[in-house]
Design a protein around this nucleic acid. Structure first.
Lengths: 233, 233
DNA sequence: TCACTAAATGACTGATCAGTCACTTTTCGA
DNA sequence: TCGAAAAGTGACTGATCAGTCATTTAGTGA
């Protein structure tokens, strides 16, 4: 999956586009890239259209030719891209896996890689996504809740199937899905903060592989040490 | 622990306060309550000092007598209270517990109760705390990272001890602490969102006790079903 | 080359709001 | 009771910025 899957997709699926239309698409994409960078750096509120326009090398008015809905439309469009990529990542990871465990580990690995490659997106999601879920603006809240629910459903399906196959404990699947997403995001942030604070990656979780194994062990096997009797306190 | 532990504490530890000083403390507290309510409802950016002042039944200028640092000082003071209560909750839960498992379950139970009693705080933390951790304003980021680290250290101590006693797998303790906090917050939000969206609590996680057992099982025992061979994929 | 259209532009407008301060009200000791 | 000091107040100021629109520029076909 590339950085620009939605863009490529639009490009590929309509090879009959005129030069003008292709150019328009390119410009739109440039604006989106600029918006993503500025939103990631400043957050929704502190990002200004002037800065986005400047970064995209267009006048502010031009943004409105491409995104008539203004700041909000730009913002939603940025997230639409991120979310589409992540949905695809979930599906790809579990697709060919022979067991839940293997699908799950593939999913963790792909996610950590994804966040590592796209720090700006991780920051953006951290800064805004949670916050928007409980936004007082109903349109914003609805947009984010819709996508959030979509992730949950994708994961929930795989978990439910694993429960029915007896691979996974009979726990409420949706809550498990929610927990997994929370862990993933939390651990990715932990690694990022550690790296920023200390200047180098976390001792034990520096590599994608270490992070994957940690979360896989923790979630699949649990915290309790099973080498000793699990009955004695 | 009450809603006003810090306040009470200040009250109790200095019984020698004059009436004037006590009145001043009362007014300060009223402003903090108002600020918490407005910040929780609107979020940091959309909350206005005018509304806080109105809600506290003071003029805007008076706020500056009590919080010369303005909006930021009010905001920090609100979080200072929340964070102090939560630190106390961690310590109390693990204090008398005979095993990590029991301390951990007490901690989960107390946390869910705490968040249920203080929805506004949960919303506030969700909306702002994560976001502030990566704020471009260094003072804000430092404040939140300081408290975040304090939580982690408290939990990490208990986890490390449990690992050394052989109760818990030898995983990196700090990352485990981070994960636990993320899960707790995530699940509390999941329950709150479910209740808001559907109009009634989640089927399987409606009560504090169910939520506690769910997270306790998931984190302590893991997802994998151990009633069948754990070797066969 | 010209004229016409579509696209680009950025100065401007109006709304918002944190923070200020000159003024009013209250408190309290003398 | 009085007057000085402390506390309270809210209209005002300056800064910010999303969104607009009259004007300029580029593209195109005759």
């Amino acid at each position: 999956m590339t950085d620009q899957s939605l863009f490529d997709q639009a490009f590929m699926e309509s090879p009959a586009l005129s030069r003008k239309e292709r150019e328009r698409l390119m410009r739109r994409q440039a604006m989106l890239e600029a918006a993503r960078a500025v939103f990631a750096e400043k957050g929704y509120v502190d990002a200004t259209l002037d800065e986005i326009a400047q970064r995209a090398e267009f006048g502010k008015g031009t943004l409105y030719n491409y995104f008539p809905g203004g700041k909000d439309e730009l913002f939603f469009a940025v997230f639409e891209e991120i979310f589409a990529q992540f949905r695809q990542l979930i599906e790809t990871s579990f697709a060919g896996a022979p067991s839940f465990r293997e699908g799950f580990e593939a999913f963790l690995r792909a996610s950590f890689q994804f966040f590592e490659q796209h720090r700006d997106m991780l920051l953006l999601v951290t800064r805004e996504s949670q916050r928007m879920l409980v936004s007082p603006d109903p349109e914003r809240a609805a947009f984010f809740q819709h996508h959030h629910t979509a992730f949950l459903q994708l994961l929930t399906r795989h978990i439910q199937a694993a429960i029915e196959r007896g691979e996974v404990r009979p726990l409420p699947a949706e809550a498990v899905a929610h927990t997994i997403l929370g862990n993933l995001h939390g651990l990715a942030m932990h690694r990022l903060l550690k790296e920023c604070a200390v200047g180098k990656p976390d001792h034990h979780l520096g590599t994608t592989e270490e992070a994957t194994r940690f979360l896989s062990t923790l979630l699949l096997e649990g915290l309790l040490n099973r080498t000793q009797s699990s009955e004695a306190p």
